[in-house]
Amino acid sequence: MTAVAEAGRGRSSSGAAARGWGRLRQGRALPVLVVLGAIMVLWYLAALWLNAPRTIEQFQREDRADYSIGELAAAAWSMERPVLPTPGQIAADIWKTTVDTRITSKRSLVYHASVTMSSTLVGFALGTVLGIAIAIGIVHVPTLDRSIMPWVIASQTIPILAIAPMIVVVLGNLGFTGILPKAVISAYLSFFPVTIGMVKGLRSPDPLQLDLMRTYSASRTQIFSKLRWPASLGFLFPSLKIGIALALVGAIVGELPTGAQAGIGARLLTGSYYGQMVPMWSALVVSGLLAMICIFAVSAVERAVALARGGRA
């Protein structure tokens, strides 16, 4: 939060102050790095605290009594199966399973990430189309506003963990396996913010802007294409950012109940079966990175659209 605010202020100020240290202080990088550094320090301390008891046990079994704090820390930070792995261990594991492993291998995180991403993107596309369609219906048909809106909201109160297995089973019975059931779960999560955002966006034109269309005796289709739709785009993109992050969550959750062989969810599941914390953390970090990439991609499209529409950039 602070980092974002800082960065915003940094961009607005200009000129002489933005040099050397001042430039670093006003830029985006420093605040982010400070927070990252603090997290690292706390993480290593937490890893020491959580892993030390088992390391001490290990030392006792080896009849080692004369260890220093430094030796204890070194051992706690490099355990084979730690309670909390260090960032270094996670980074090393990610490196090993991405760069050092062939993409076609079942051990490659790139492979698993691509499996999850493909159902994320399909589900996100489905959810976006569905969300926009529902919003258009709600805005144009008063009956739909009263009848569908409560269901839209109710749909999100059901825990996704409860409904995911049912979707998988039902679709499996209908002969749909592989990417589609997971994509449906992604769509189920991601349509909601799109619907809410688009209902607000399609209703955002002010009365004068609508009266204007009426004085031209514009048709409903024209009012939609020339006023409601363009006015709603400012609301669509924030919804899409939430939607794509939820689609990723949906895809991962969808991989859990199926005993999927591939995907970030499958990696998390096998990790927890065998108590392997390091691969689980790697999968977790990679899914976080994927979410960031997705949101950056949506932001990039948003900026391009805003520029094309004469935004202040």
Partner: peptide
């Protein structure tokens, strides 16, 4: 109208 009511994206 009282206000210009221009469409800001045009």
């Amino acid at each position: 109208f009282q206000a210009p009511a221009l469409y800001p994206w045009r």
